[in-house]
């Protein structure tokens, strides 16, 4: 799996961090997503999928191999 972020869409809701804290973080100043793990390990994939499904700005995109 490959994770792509559309930073311009991100509104800093933090849903991705709550779904997968080892994959995503937020910038302090504006809350915009910081991708910690663009190539998540298999154990992280479920969290990444949950993040993409919940993001209210549709800013988290997944490319499944």
């Amino acid at each position: 799996m490959k994770i792509l972020i559309d930073e311009e869409r991100c509104i800093g809701a933090g849903q991705c961090v709550m779904a997968a804290p080892d994959v995503f973080d937020q910038r302090e100043e504006d809350g915009v997503v910081v991708l910690l793990e663009p190539d998540p390990a298999p154990a992280q994939e479920a969290g990444a999928r949950r993040a993409a499904a919940l993001c209210p700005a549709a800013a988290v995109l997944l490319r499944e191999h």
Partner: peptide
């Protein structure tokens, strides 16, 4: 506003 991580 302006404190996204503290809010979360």
């Amino acid at each position: 506003a302006g404190l996204p991580k503290a809010l979360r």
